[in-house]
Amino acid sequence: MISERLKKIICNELNLGVELVEMDENTEANEVPGWDSLNHANIIVAIEKDYGVRFKGLEILKCKNIGDLQKLVDSKTTGQK
């Protein structure tokens, strides 16, 4: 499952209405309108800021889809709770 929080951060960064965008684990970046290679880094920075975490470069590069990104966020935040 993709959390509402993650979806909201992504949509905010891309100026998209949350209700207009479908996202599941298998959605890839290029399937989300406006998510291109140039603003990819901005989205990652926005996620890091919102959750107060820091990813390693390799961890981000290994993400194939939004599901992987959610897992990465979860792995960083479970320890915090």
């Binding site: 290679s37 880094a41 470069g57 981000i60 590069l61």
Partner: peptide, 17 residues
């Protein structure tokens, strides 16, 4: 090349890109 660089420079924002 581009993706790894961009991720490493991400805190520089536009300058990193």
């Amino acid at each position: 090349v581009f993706r790894p660089l961009q991720i490493n420079f991400r805190n520089w924002r536009v300058a990193g890109n």
